[in-house]
């Protein structure tokens, strides 16, 4: 409980830590627009100046010189799905660590013990995943 109180007491001022105003976010969107314009602009210029003479053989998928045998959208190994699931689990844990790390000095020993418990559960899951062989790639 006192973790919350410590947070609320600190919410009023954070010495030396700059505050963000919404206007800080505007340049990012402007930058996105400019970057989009750069990408679209180069493609547009390329469309105007480049030669264009398509051929049937040129349009074939590259398979080292032989004719395309069959389509590419087929089943692939389940390992990729497992990696994706592991990523979701562990990356969410990482994101949980970020706010904790920022407030850590205010939370003190309480926050430390709390996070050790949290990470302990995470490590248990990690060891189980390892034992199950989900980290092997064969």
């Amino acid at each position: 409980m006192w973790g919350f109180r410590a947070l609320r007491a600190r919410a009023g001022h954070t010495a030396g830590v700059p505050y963000a105003m919404p206007q800080n976010y505007i340049p990012i969107f402007v930058f996105l627009l400019v970057a989009f314009a750069v990408a679209a602009g180069t493609l547009l210029v390329a469309t105007i100046v480049r030669p264009r003479n398509p051929e049937k053989v040129k349009g074939m998928a590259y398979e080292c010189g032989i004719e395309v045998q069959e389509g590419s959208r087929k089943r692939y190994t389940v390992r990729f799905y497992i990696v994706a699931i592991l990523f979701v689990i562990f990356d969410v844990e990482t994101i949980f660590l970020f706010p904790w790390a920022v407030q850590f000095k205010q939370l003190g020993a309480y926050g430390f013990v709390e996070m050790i418990v949290f990470l302990g559960i995470l490590v248990l899951g990690y060891l189980w995943v390892w034992k199950k062989g989900a980290l092997e790639w064969i």
Partner: peptide, 9 residues
Amino acid sequence: FLLKEDLTP
């Protein structure tokens, strides 16, 4: 890069 033919299969 600009002057090369841009193939879209």
